[in-house]
Write a protein that binds this DNA or RNA. Structure first.
Length: 375
RNA sequence: GCGGCGUUGGUGAAGUGGUUAACACGCUGGUUUGUGGCACCAGUAUGCAUGAGUUCGAUCCUCAUACGCCGCC
């Protein structure tokens, strides 16, 4: 079996969906937030810590594992699950986004055949193609592989985006052709930027290729929020109801809620772990910065309503001390909290969908999260 | 008691007779969305030991005082 998505309920007033994803490594409810473990590790966290906070699928990255330790090493070590001792599902990103982020400020050479770019480790010239990406992901033996796409920056011209969408479609076809891991699902990626007709086109053509799931790519690349939400709407409209919908790279709490309301099932994002390492935490009352002097002697947990390991055991004063002194435990504790915060958010969204009150939930969440003055 | 040297922000310090006193750290905020992990951005001395003098103008020159370090009696 690859994976199967079971749609159990659509919320009455919105497109929000409650369902399950069945995989070879267990069945999990959606909407779901997936922590990012780029290099076969969710930075600083053990598998027990992830499971204790109810993590389901986690992410890993083709580009990074390609460079180190290399796909053959992982294959010879029994595949990614065995290698990193993670017995729950893994989704591997294709490396498409790395082409965007690695080469953001430099020249990148995108050709029909693939992408030439330089290793961030030693500068050597690399060449990644759709076939290569899928071949690596086959070896990694993740549960879900992603098609290799082009993720253009924002903004680009309509003409460029049109060409890019066409190329991503050809790449999707090529990748699908060489995909040969019977236990691995393969997802297609919808692109098209902020152009409604290109999103529609990308969506319909990608669906024709019949993937195991679909993701909305090309968001959170510099556009404003209304534009991003429109991209999601335009990208999701023509996707089949019986397949998973994945909004790539989105993990701001508000964006997750807005995504779920528009019909997204799964999300991934580096935000919870990255901001944790820089001393910041999500709370019901908004994002806070533990570096702030006001927490110097604050013995309260980060969030009184949080059930995570960090909030059950440590105070803001202590975490602030760890963060300001550069102790690694600080980032770890905040990562645990932030991941739990987003996972708990999706748990509550599932309940809201079941109760048909997701709009009400959003209103209540925003009132607390953004302060009383808004909306 | 005599002589020499020194005294610049929270810290280490640079510097000049003339608009905004360098840099670093610290401190205070902020940013971060398919991770180039441990980053980036902004703010932070109306002030140069104290007093007087020289000068159009002094943190920078002169004198005195205080404090510190070193040497001599």
């Amino acid at each position: 079996m690859k994976i199967r998505y079971n749609l159990l309920k659509t919320e009455k007033n919105t497109q929000a969906r409650f369902g399950t994803i069945q995989t070879n490594h267990g069945t999990y409810e959606t909407p779901m937030f997936m922590p990012v473990g780029t290099r076969a590790t969710v930075k600083s966290l053990s598998k027990e810590e992830l499971k204790d906070e109810h993590a389901g699928i986690i992410l890993s990255n083709t580009y990074h594992l390609w460079l180190r330790p290399g796909p053959d090493v992982i294959k010879n070590c029994g595949g990614l699950h065995k290698f990193m001792s993670w017995d729950q599902p893994i989704l591997t990103d294709s490396g498409g986004f790395q082409v965007f982020s690695l080469a953001k400020n430099k020249r990148k050479d995108i050709t029909e055949e693939g992408v030439h770019f330089k290793s961030h480790i030693d500068g050597q010239n690399l060449f990644l193609t759709p076939e290569k990406s899928i071949e690596i992901q086959n070896k990694l033996d993740s549960d879900i592989a992603m098609s290799f796409d082009e993720c253009p920056p924002y903004p680009v011209t309509y003409e460029y985006m049109k060409k890019s969408v066409e190329r991503t479609l050809r790449w999707a076809k090529r990748g699908k052709k060489v995909h040969n891991n019977p236990n691995q699902a393969l997802f297609g990626i919808v692109q098209g930027g902020e152009f409604t007709d290109l999103r529609e086109y990308s969506c319909k053509e990608t669906v024709k290729l019949d993937f195991d799931g679909y993701s909305i790519g090309g968001t959170s690349v510099g556009e404003d929020k209304p534009t991003m939400y429109k991209m999601v709407e335009d990208g999701i409209r023509y996707l089949p109801k019986d397949k998973v919908r994945y909004l790539m790279g989105v993990g701001d709490p508000i964006d997750i809620i807005e995504g779920v309301i528009r019909g997204v099932d799964i999300f991934d994002c580096v935000l919870p772990t990255r901001i944790a390492r820089h001393g910041q935490a999500f709370t019901r009352g908004g994002k806070i910065n533990l570096n702030n002097a006001k927490y110097k002697e604050d013995l309260n947990p980060i969030d009184n309503s949080c059930d995570c390991y960090t909030c059950k055991n440590y105070s803001k004063a202590y975490i602030r001390h760890l963060i300001t002194t550069g102790e690694t435990l600080g980032g770890r504790l905040l990562s645990i909290h932030n991941i739990r915060f987003l996972i708990k958010l999706t748990e509550e969204l599932r309940e809201a969908i079941k109760n048909d009150n997701i709009l009400e939930y959003r209103k209540e969440f925003l009132t607390k999260y953004e302060g009383k003055q808004k909306k």
